[in-house]
């Protein structure tokens, strides 16, 4: 078999028709994936900022509860956390009859909560590291101006930390994107869920999952591209001088 026929036979193996017939399924999957990623990141961010400040405290009663939270959520797989929330909560009658059930009933809600709580732990660690390495001079200068602790954080420490945390944070965004694929295990039809349906209906695992992989790659590329722009804008003072 020469190169040409081999290439032709591989192309022949890829059944485009299956993907073309199901493009709407994949498109709605992309929408669910983006929604899960964005909402869980926002929830994580809102929780992570106060937690990261608490983590840098010297008082044990302030940092220890947060440390324990971070330890638990980083120390167990996200899939276990998701199953605990989704299947675990449904096991108890008092939860099923409780006021939270209309929310916990929805797989979508469970996925966002589990992923949000999980990424909050990672984000808190990223911000804690950035806060801890804030240059002493910036803080001393702010104190010399007579800034209150609140103003010190909102004007100096947090903006400065966010800038320096950006590269690590982008990593966390990408990790969050990939971990949304677990949502297909609690019946959501995200990109992975769409691929599983196509695979099981047409018995074409190669086409189904390769298409999903390409979609994740494209989304990741957009995230990296956006982050690059943001980094150039925010961290212009940290860039190496170019001659």
């Amino acid at each position: 078999m020469d190169g040409g026929t081999l290439q032709a036979s591989i192309l022949q193996f890829f059944d485009y028709q299956v993907i073309i017939d199901n493009w709407q399924l994949y498109l709605s999957g992309v929408f669910v994936t983006l929604q899960l990623t964005a909402l869980s990141l926002i929830l994580g961010f809102v929780l992570a900022v106060p937690m990261s400040i608490m983590l840098t405290s010297r008082k044990p009663w302030v940092w220890m509860p947060v440390w324990l939270y971070v330890y638990c959520f980083r120390g167990t797989p996200l899939l276990i956390q998701l199953f605990l929330l989704y299947y675990g909560a449904g096991q108890f009658a008092f939860i099923r009859e409780g006021f939270l059930w209309p929310f916990l009933r929805e797989a979508w809600f469970c996925a966002i909560i589990a992923m949000g709580l999980n990424t909050a732990a990672y984000q808190a660690e990223i911000f804690r590291g950035a806060i801890a390495t804030t240059p002493r001079g910036e803080i001393e200068a702010a104190r010399a101006f007579g800034m209150s602790p609140f103003r010190l954080y909102s004007r100096i420490i947090l903006p400065s930390s966010f800038r320096r945390a950006l590269p690590a944070y982008v990593n966390e965004v990408i990790f969050s994107l990939q971990s949304t694929s677990l949502a297909s295990l609690v019946t959501l039809i995200d990109i992975t869920g769409a691929a599983r349906i196509v695979n099981s209906r047409y018995y074409t695992p190669y086409e189904a999952f390769l298409s999903a992989a390409v979609l994740y790659l494209v989304i990741t590329f957009v995230i990296i591209w956006l982050a690059g722009g943001l980094e150039r804008r925010w961290n212009v003072h940290l860039a190496r001088p170019t001659s």
């Binding site: 299947y87 449904g90 059930w101 009933r105 797989a107 019946t187």
Partner: peptide
């Protein structure tokens, strides 16, 4: 999928047992 996809919401599971869990849970 062929008969009710346009009117009802179809929720798909990896195993029959997972589906029974969610039936009991009221999902």
């Amino acid at each position: 999928t062929d008969n009710y996809a346009s009117v009802a919401e179809i929720v798909r599971y990896g195993s029959q047992d997972d589906m029974f869990l969610d039936l009991v849970a009221g999902r």
